[in-house]
Design a protein around this nucleic acid. Structure first.
Lengths: 248, 248
DNA sequence: CGGGGAGTTGAATGCAGTCAACAAATGTGG
DNA sequence: CCACATTTGTTGACTGCATTCAACTCCCCG
């Protein structure tokens, strides 16, 4: 883990800003809001950002890299709550209880913008718009959580896997506008199992079925979806709605 | 549906205040915050509070009664996202997108305190504490959602049902301090199935198993849990943690 | 008293888990 | 640069939990 305190990239030019917290703010409010950020943190793949039970003293915006948010269960398993991508806003806790209910681990090398929690009090009193920007982010995460819950609770393994792959593919596509057909995909089949409540063995069987149907290509940390509409049908989700939810 | 605009109950004496939004505020902030409320609404059992796709123009605090929040699926099924009880804060949307992603229906007769959304802008600029109070409520709901996701994704039907019953029992116990052993429980086995992604038939079989083990008594819209600790074991959850999450 | 929703029961089916073994890919140190 | 270890992915046989479908009972409410 490495801290960067000097020559920080400017928020107004930030590549992920439009999908991040500050994307919800007008440019002329950015000057005030920028005071929130204290420094950047670089975390190597596999290291924890924070642990369940820690007290939150900083909120983060992911600047680059993927993060897995999860809970450890008593039986030794873990439940992945979601995968967080660049632009996602983590660890904001303003209630009296600052104890974190889950852990976070870097799936690839991750760079974070850090915002000390206590600064939010003063900045929000001067700039109430920031509170609404945070609400907007929270509402989006909650809506995504609702669709994940729906997928996990009431669909088959094939639909669940298709849903997760398509969601992540759409999000990464928006963030990374290269013309290459593959997007980075730094998670294992076991991660997918832990996120969906399936065994990695069954995830593997579903992968093969999806490959055979020509719906996905996935190897060496890369993913390509040749026909998003077809995969959406298997995922039992409306593609336009999913695009609204993931590409915002 | 009936509106009440006069002789509204006073917020400072409200029985559910401590578990509601205003419970997060100091008493001397209540005077300002109280301006938020426009009126109360009474909704008979079975009627909608709002529909998926509606634009949110009011937020609500449930004053009495139970509410089911759900999404309708293409196949005709529905996914219940959560059951909302007195004190719960619904429908607060401050992002640009005000479209609601789910519907809500009254499970029993419900009384709501209504807060027009546009009033939050002015009140929060004058009283930033309100923004933090709302954050605190949101954080609690999110943590509960995480535990539900965990239960649904990775436990057996028996554990899921036990988890849901225990959660609701604990919440209702805090709200209603009568000495009677039963608490009101205005949901059907089918509702439970729709919340957990199980068929009502299988929920029924689980109910019978739990009854045979002496873990629950449940009939005619009433629920009693003789031994919360034992049910928590079946639910695969730590009772103290669940109590913190549900009784706050 | 009759109708409808909610709950109950049984038999057959099927999706996903478990266990065990192996193959391929990735990473590490000599 | 190769040898080895570890992680990740793959395959097959068997088991078991939850679904499906169909029939039936109970209870509440008009």
């Amino acid at each position: 883990m490495k801290s960067i305190t000097q020559n920080l990239p400017k928020c107004q030019d930030c590549a992920v800003r439009k999908s991040a917290l500050f994307g919800e703010l007008e440019t002329d409010h950015l000057n005030k809001a920028r005071e929130l950020r204290s420094h950047q943190i670089v975390i190597p793949a596999g290291e924890h950002l924070y642990h369940e039970g820690d007290e939150s003293d900083k909120a983060f915006t992911i600047y680059s890299g993927w993060v897995s948010l999860f809970k450890n269960l008593e039986d030794g398993n873990r439940q992945i709550l979601r995968f967080a991508l660049p632009g996602d806003f983590l660890c904001y806790k303003m209630g009296k209880n600052k104890t974190l209910d889950h852990s976070a681990i870097a799936l690839s090398e991750v760079t974070l913008c850090a915002f000390p929690i206590d600064r939010f009090h003063t900045v929000i009193s001067e700039l109430p718009e920031l509170a609404f920007a945070i609400s907007a982010m929270t509402e989006l995460v909650t809506e995504r959580c609702h669709t994940v819950l729906t997928s996990i609770a009431s669909h088959t393994a094939e639909a669940k896997v298709a849903y997760l792959l398509l969601s992540l593919y759409l999000r990464e596509r928006v963030l990374n506008k290269t013309e290459e057909k593959c997007v980075q995909f730094p998670i294992t089949q076991e991660d997918i199992g832990d996120a969906l409540g399936l065994t990695s063995i069954h995830v593997n069987r579903v992968f093969q079925s999806l490959r055979k149907q020509g719906l996905i290509e996935c190897k060496s940390k890369c993913l390509w979806v040749p026909d998003k509409a077809k995969l959406a049908v298997v995922a039992k989700v409306s593609l336009p709605e999913l695009e609204r939810l993931m590409c915002k």
